[in-house]
Amino acid sequence: MIVKRTQLTWWERLYLPALIGGFKVTLRHFKNTITGRTRVTQQYPEEPTKVPPGYRGAPYLVRDQDGDTKCVSCQLCEFICPPKAIKIIPPGDSGLQSDRANAEKMPREFEINMLRCIFCGFCQEVCPEEAIFLKQDFSLTGLARGEMVFNKEKLLSLGGTHAGIQKWKHKLDEAEEQETFPIQT
């Protein structure tokens, strides 16, 4: 492609118009800021940051409307987590019963190392139970590395409630309506 090079007049070639234009622009910005017409700086700790909805903050575990843990320890988030920040210990033979009727599985321990987490949101995307969500927290600090590894209680307490489709409960209700087999939960 041909790039047209405009011929500069001798006045333009002296570069003075460019200089004067530059002076005007910078002076305008200076005046606007110093008189207060331009206010873009956020004075951070005093003015808290409002994050937009859908902001990817720290991931937390959520409970459903009835206060049950939604996580069923499927370990998909552990698998997909790119920096391997999530570590899950499945219930195994511990005899740990899920605290929710009809879903037989619940993690024995669920740890997220917030220092490794890159806040990508893959765990939220892959979770089939809508149990982990990236909430609004972005400034996580701690005094030791161990402090920043959040365990299940901490994650559940920070996650709050997320009402959703209570799949396992619906299944149980449906099963109990059908008379054919006695259903044990």
């Binding site: 099963a175 059908q178 054919t180 087999f181 259903i183």
Partner: peptide, 9 residues
């Protein structure tokens, strides 16, 4: 429709 539910576990 509703699935047929049978004994689990």
């Amino acid at each position: 429709e509703a699935k047929v539910h049978k004994p689990k576990a």
